[in-house]
Amino acid sequence: MQLPDAEQLLQTLAERIRPLIDEDTALVGIHSGGAWLAERLQPMLGEDLPLGTLDISFYRDDFSRIGLHPQIKPSNIPFDVEGSHIILIDDVLYTGRTARAAMNELFDYGRPARITLAALIDRGGREMPIHAEVVGATVTLEPGQNIELVRDTTGHLHLKLTGGV
C-alpha cells in the first residue's frame, strides 16, 4: 500500500483546522504523535494559539490489564480549559479509546466550551462513538497491520506501516 506523505498531510490538516479557529481556541496534542503534530501546527495556525499536551496514561481503560505505561510524559495544559474551544490532535484515529481518555483528562482541568477532534489519519475500526471533525486522510489497512507516526532526527514526520502479511 502506498502511504500518504506525513508532511503533506500536515499541510492539509492545517488548512482544514484553520476555519475552525476562534478567539477561545487552543491546540492540545496527545502524546507522542499528536504532540509532535500540535507543535508543528501551532506556528502554522498562529503563534499566539495556546498549546498543550496530554499523556493519557492515567486515563487508559486497559490499566488493569496491562499496567502503567513505563514511560509517561507529564501532561502540560498551560491555559485555562474552562470555556475554551479545544482542538484535540491525535496522529492515528482507530478505536476511539485514546480520544475518550483524553476528553476525560481534559475535564479534570476544567469545563471546555467545545472539543473538536482532529486526526492526521483515520484508519477506521472505531469501538467508541467518537468522530473526528478534521481528518488528514482516511486509509484502509489489512488485518494485523498498524500505522504509526514517527519523527526523525531532523524533526520530519513520516508514516510507518507495521505488521500484516
Binding site: 499523556d55 496514561s57 492515567f58 486515563y59 490499566f63 502503567l68 514511560q71 509517561i72 510524559k73 507529564p74 501532561s75 502540560n76 480549559v81 474552562e82 476525560n104 483528562e105 475535564f107 479534570d108 482541568y109 476544567g110
Partner: peptide, 19 residues
C-alpha cells in the same frame, strides 16, 4: 519519572486521576 507526571495532577482543578 512517573512521579514527575503526578506532580501536575496535584496542581489541577480536579486533583484526581481514575487509575
Amino acid at each position: 519519572d512517573t512521579a514527575e507526571s503526578f506532580t501536575g495532577v496535584s496542581e489541577r482543578e480536579v486533583k484526581k486521576v481514575p487509575l
